[in-house]
C-alpha cells in the first residue's frame, strides 16, 4: 500500500473545511491545504475571526473538520485516538490555561502523571522543563498560579506543554496577555527555546511583527482562507491587499517610533 505523500509533513491539511453546523452556510474555514514540516515554526497570522484559532484546534481535535482531511504524523486524524493524540501535542493558550487548584509542579507534571510515568522521572522532567523556560524549579514548585506574574504564568504554561516531550507544540496567542516589555523578553526566549528543543510549532498571532519574528514561515489567513504563505523575509514583498494591510500596520508602528 502506498503511503500518502506526507513523508516530511508532520501535520498536513488537505482541502479542509470547517462549519459550526452543516446547516449554516457560512464556513469558518474553507479550502485549507497546508503542510507543516518537522522542526518548522508556522505562524498563523490573521485578524480576529479569520479562523486561525479554529485551525489550531483542528490539529488536536478540539474541533473536527466538516470536510477534507487532516494528517498528523502521517495518520489521518480519524484514525487517531483523541486522548493519545492530545497527549502527544503540547498546547499553550493565554494565561487562563493553568489549573488554579494545582501547584506549578502539579500543573507541569499533569500529562506525565496521566501517562503514568514513574514518580522519579516526573520529578526530573519537571526540573528539566522549568530550567528550559528559565524558572528555578525548587522556588516555584509549590506555588499556585495566582501567586505568579503574567510572564511567569506564561512560562509555566510553556513548561507544561513541553513536559511530556511532545513532537508538536500548538500555541494560541501565547504572549497576547502580557505587557510589551515582558512580551518582547518572552519572544526572545521563545526563539532560543525553539532552537534548542527542535519541535514542530504552530503559533497563532494577530501581531504581524510577532509572526515575522518567531515564524520560520508565516501563513496569512483571512475570512477562513489561506491568502498567502511566505518566509518572513519574503512576506514583506507580498502584493495581496490583505498582506499589504498587515505590512502597513507594522510599518506604521515602526514609523511612529522614529
Amino acid at each position: 500500500m502506498r503511503k500518502p505523500q506526507v513523508k516530511n509533513a508532520i501535520i498536513e491539511f488537505r482541502d479542509v473545511e470547517y462549519r459550526i453546523n452543516t446547516i449554516s452556510s457560512r464556513s469558518i474555514l474553507s479550502g485549507i491545504s497546508l503542510e507543516v514540516h518537522q522542526g518548522e515554526t508556522i505562524a498563523l497570522l490573521g485578524r480576529s475571526g479569520s479562523g486561525k484559532t479554529t485551525m489550531l484546534k483542528l490539529i488536536n481535535r478540539l474541533r473536527v473538520c466538516t470536510s477534507g482531511s487532516i494528517f498528523v504524523e502521517g495518520h489521518n486524524l480519524l484514525e487517531w485516538d483523541s486522548i493519545r493524540l492530545r497527549r502527544r501535542i503540547g498546547y499553550v493558550i493565554q494565561e487562563v490555561g493553568l489549573f488554579p487548584h494545582l501547584t506549578v509542579e502539579e500543573n507541569v507534571s499533569l500529562v506525565p502523571a496521566l501517562e503514568k510515568w514513574p514518580a522519579a522521572r516526573i520529578k526530573d522532567r519537571f526540573a528539566e522543563v522549568m530550567h528550559l523556560v528559565g524558572m528555578k524549579p525548587e522556588e516555584y514548585a509549590a506555588r499556585y498560579p495566582r501567586n505568579l506574574s503574567g510572564g511567569q504564568r506564561q512560562r509555566v504554561g510553556v513548561a507544561r506543554a513541553l513536559a511530556a516531550d511532545p513532537a508538536i507544540l500548538l500555541m494560541d496567542e501565547p504572549f497576547g496577555a502580557l505587557d510589551p516589555v515582558t512580551r518582547a523578553e518572552l519572544q526572545q526566549e521563545f526563539l532560543a527555546l525553539a532552537r534548542r528543543v527542535s519541535k514542530t510549532i504552530v503559533l497563532v498571532t494577530h501581531d504581524v511583527r510577532e509572526a515575522l519574528l518567531l515564524g520560520s514561515r508565516v501563513v496569512l489567513l483571512d475570512a477562513g482562507r489561506i491568502m498567502a504563505q511566505a518566509a518572513p523575509r519574503e512576506f514583506m514583498r507580498l502584493e495581496q491587499p490583505i498582506a499589504r494591510q498587515f505590512i502597513a500596520a507594522s510599518e506604521l508602528v515602526a514609523g511612529a517610533a522614529q
Binding site: R84, I93, V96, L98
Partner: peptide, 22 residues
C-alpha cells in the same frame, strides 16, 4: 471556566478525569 475545561481537554484528559480532577 470553559477555557480551563478546554485546556484540560487539550491536554488529553478523559471526561472522567476532567470531572474528578478539574
Amino acid at each position: 471556566d470553559p477555557a480551563i475545561l478546554e485546556a484540560a481537554e487539550a491536554m488529553g484528559m478523559t471526561e472522567l478525569q476532567i470531572l474528578f480532577q478539574v
